[in-house]
Amino acid sequence: MTLRPLHDDFSTSAKIDEALNKRFPAKTRIDYLRLVRASDLHGGEHQARQANIRRITDQARELYNFIQDYERVRAHGEEVTADYTKQANFAVKERARLIAEANRLRNEPGVGNLPYERGAEFILDSAGQFKAVKVDARIAKGQSPQDALNSVREEILECDRAMRAARAAPLPLAEAAKQIEEDVRAFRRGPDVLATMRIRQETFGRNGSHSTQGRVRFPSREVVLDGGNREEVDEGVRFLCWLFPDQIIKKATAELEAAYKDKKPLSLAERTRVIAELESKKLDAERREEAIIRSIEDAGGIQWRRPLANMLAVLGIERAA
Results as ranks from 00 to 15, higher is better:
31 D>I: 03
227 G>W: 01
192 D>S: 13
274 V>I: 13
238 R>C: 01
306 R>Y: 01
97 R>T: 11
26 A>Y: 03
167 R>F: 10
232 E>S: 06
177 A>W: 03
246 D>S: 15
89 N>Y: 04
236 G>M: 12
209 S>D: 05
18 E>A: 15
126 S>K: 04
286 E>L: 07
263 K>Y: 00
280 S>G: 14
98 L>G: 04
291 A>Q: 01
218 F>Q: 01
257 E>H: 12
79 E>W: 08
30 I>G: 11
312 L>W: 02
179 Q>C: 11
105 L>K: 06
69 D>Y: 04
270 E>V: 02
194 L>G: 02
31 D>P: 01
265 P>G: 00
146 Q>A: 13
282 K>A: 07
313 A>R: 05
199 I>Q: 15
214 G>H: 05
249 I>A: 06
5 P>C: 12
131 K>E: 15
286 E>N: 01
144 S>D: 09
42 H>T: 06
153 R>E: 12
321 A>C: 04
292 I>K: 01
200 R>E: 14
255 E>L: 11
109 P>E: 10
1 M>T: 09
68 Q>D: 11
262 D>R: 08
205 G>P: 11
111 V>P: 02
289 E>D: 11
248 I>D: 08
313 A>S: 12
74 R>L: 14
113 N>F: 00
304 W>Q: 03
10 F>T: 06
228 G>D: 06
35 L>N: 05
188 R>N: 11
297 E>V: 07
154 E>Y: 09
317 I>C: 02
174 A>Y: 12
157 L>A: 12
131 K>Q: 15
282 K>L: 04
